[in-house]
């Protein structure tokens, strides 16, 4: 049970990380927010932290050989999901950056 929860957290932080990475690009930031420029460096740093957290959680839950695969696939799936949301429902990604100025 605890392991499922940790894995879910790992998936969530992988998704958030890829979301931040996408929103650090001005064309996607503008899809979600407005015509301003994104705080690109900050968002990229946050993305890196979130992705590393995701890797750490994956390694916590599974044997390292499996954890690496889970992490890589989570990143791929998250990137795809973020792209689909940006295409069809960009506003749904707003909570990821609503705290920014």
């Amino acid at each position: 049970m605890v392991e499922s929860l940790l894995l879910a957290l790992g998936v969530a932080s992988g998704f958030i990380g890829m979301g931040w990475l996408a929103l650090s690009m001005s064309q996607h930031w503008q899809q979600v927010r407005d015509t301003s420029l994104p705080p690109a460096k900050l968002l990229r740093a946050l993305a890196a932290v979130a992705l590393l957290t995701s890797l750490f959680l994956c390694l916590w839950v599974d044997h390292p050989s499996i954890a690496v695969l889970v992490w890589v696939m989570v990143i791929s799936a998250s990137a795809f999901l973020v792209a689909m949301l940006l295409a069809w429902r960009p506003r749904w990604l707003k909570p990821l950056v609503s705290w920014a100025h």
């Binding site: 894995l7 499996i66 695969l69 889970v70 696939m73 989570v74 791929s76 799936a77 795809f80």
Partner: peptide, 23 residues
Amino acid sequence: TGLHLQHFEHWPLRWLYVLGGLL
């Protein structure tokens, strides 16, 4: 070999593989 033939017990990873294949 193992990652391709996947006899491990990890249901979320299996579904992620299906997603990868469909992508």
